[in-house]
Write a protein that binds this DNA or RNA. Structure first.
Lengths: 320, 320
DNA sequence: AGCGTTGAGGACAGGAGTTGTCCGCGAGGG
DNA sequence: CCCTCGCGGACAACTCCTGTCCTCAACGCT
């Protein structure tokens, strides 16, 4: 009977890992007869977890959204990600869910294996509060839509605005996603153009529903995703680089700046901060936040932005 | 049949809700004999989930951190909190876990009941990126330590720095936590002082291990926590209020400012922004971020900070 | 030190549930 | 039209679960 319960859990876990499973696949994985799989699926349904099934040659089982949330079966990495996210959320920018986040976090941390707890702490300590989130933000709903399409090998239809703002409807077989700098990219086989393409996720507007399933294909020449994406992306993660002379010691600034660039000491009271930015406005403000005097060495555009800010603040405080 | 598996899941869920359970409590909840509970606990252990037990009159079962992560059984609110946290994390400030967060999020959203999905979307749309997190930040580890002590009715020992910075060792029976503005407060019965006290969590340094269990007591006069805390806190959630005349329409600003104060239209191109802040530095920077001209109406201290910023930027850009 | 409480676990008998096998049915896609 | 895949009834062999009853072993309190 242990076997039965354990198998039910494993079944639930399998259904959470991949969207669609055929009965015989499940039977293989669970090392039981297909008939038993059917019975197990029935059990899950009786427990209130809706397992949808489709018949026919492309049939299979998939776990649907039901009345109650099934137990979440996370792997190590995912558990760490959840813990870290919750930790930032409890002290984070979203009003109203702090208490609940904390409750969920307590639940999770109680059972978190110690090796994972170490990883959570390590990751957390690298966390640097970002003062501004410049550039286009990616919609979380779009991200998850694409991510599930990748995971389940389902065709994706979406409107895509290219860098000139021209819209086009794309039908692709999504391969994977990669994030680079602050951006997300989708690597996919463009069905109409019959070629591999890289799309910026912030320019994608998915259309529902997602299309039929396809058999995944390999990237050309067996390259991995990271290489593929970076070879396709012309833009660097940051639009430009900057060098700023800070009138403070490197140690004093390392907490706030360490995560965002290189701090090179010049002498006891001065250091050079090398960093990159998508937008000079945000970088200018970030620098102002420190309460420390600084001199921009490059680029000139940053100097211009800072001059503009200086003027605006002067106007605002009536000292012009 | 189903009963056995379902009961194992419920047992796991119970053990996640509260830390410590006596065998007979569990037997009551699960409506089986204590002997069966013992056997079920054994089953969980065989499945790899460590259930620690202590004998004696204060004995009981508790779920420990094991080699593998047990299935997480979240209630509705917690699931929403996790989803929202993960969504912000995927586009968030922590480098290196975006992919994994996304994977976990995909898993969760696939099984998220639609009513919960609506709540997640609603919450998400209220999200306003906060440019700066002023004031002392609360350590997530401290938060969870206190939260579990509250949940499990375990005494807590910690060092507390009062507002003068004087440290003292406290032994308390934690009652609950509340957050107010950006702050967290712990409401607890101070054992040595034999009275109720309210502590600011950012000034608490817990000592390990937590103490023995205690029987929870009611707050005096049956008041609820929120009332109790707000009656004890002299400081408002914001240290001071500000009024700023913005040279832009209220609609144009509502996205960025809506969550942080009241926007009152004056005319088509002007509006008044009323808000609060813990620190004028951050407010000044937040205002500068908009790219919109503004005039501070009050308080005078904010004007002074803006003047200071103006000077610093002027120096940085060499236009002084 | 003694007592009560709480968990651990062996033994046992009856009963409940599970499993694989074999079968025919129905739905969907090529 | 046929193939694939999910559905579910029947059945026999077998597993293992459950409640009851028992004795031990820790632990805390008096």
């Amino acid at each position: 009977m242990l076997q039965t319960s354990a198998r039910l859990l494993r079944l639930l876990s399998l259904l959470q890992i991949r969207r669609e499973w055929s009965g015989s696949d499940l039977a293989d994985r669970l090392e039981v007869d297909v008939r038993t799989v059917r019975r197990d699926v029935d059990k899950l349904r009786n427990l209130g977890y809706p397992v949808n099934a489709t018949t026919g040659s492309a049939g299979g089982y998939r776990l649907g959204a039901g009345a109650a949330l099934p137990p979440l079966l996370l792997d190590d990495d995912e558990a760490v990600a959840v813990a870290v996210s919750l930790r930032t959320a409890t002290s984070g920018p979203i009003a109203g869910i702090e208490d609940t986040s904390l409750r969920a976090l307590t639940k999770l941390e109680q059972v978190l294996p110690s090796r994972l707890r170490r990883r959570v702490n390590a990751l957390q300590s690298y966390t640097v509060p970002i003062p501004l989130r410049p550039g286009p933000t990616v919609d979380a709903a779009v991200l998850t839509t694409i991510a599930s399409a990748c995971r389940d090998s389902e065709r994706l239809r979406f409107d895509y605005a290219d860098h000139n703002g021209v819209e086009s409807l794309r039908v692709v077989e999504p391969h994977s996603m990669a994030n680079w700098g602050r951006r997300w990219y989708l690597v996919a086989w463009d069905v109409d153009r019959a070629d591999w393409r890289t799309f910026r996720v912030d320019r994608v507007s998915p259309r529902t529903p997602t299309g039929p399933r396809f058999t995944p294909r390999e990237l050309p020449n067996g390259v991995d995703v990271a290489t593929f994406v970076s070879s396709r992306i012309t833009a660097a993660p940051w639009r430009s680089r900057a060098r700023i002379l800070m009138h403070a010691s490197a140690e004093a600034l390392s907490d706030r700046f360490g995560g965002y660039g290189r701090l090179e000491p010049v002498d006891e009271n001065t250091c050079v901060f090398e960093t990159g930015a998508d937008s000079f406005e945000s970088l200018a403000l970030y620098l102002g936040m420190t309460g420390v005097d600084f001199e921009v060495q490059e680029p000139p555009e940053l100097v211009e932005h800072i001059r503009e800010l200086s003027r605006r603040y002067a106007r605002a405080s009536g000292s012009e």
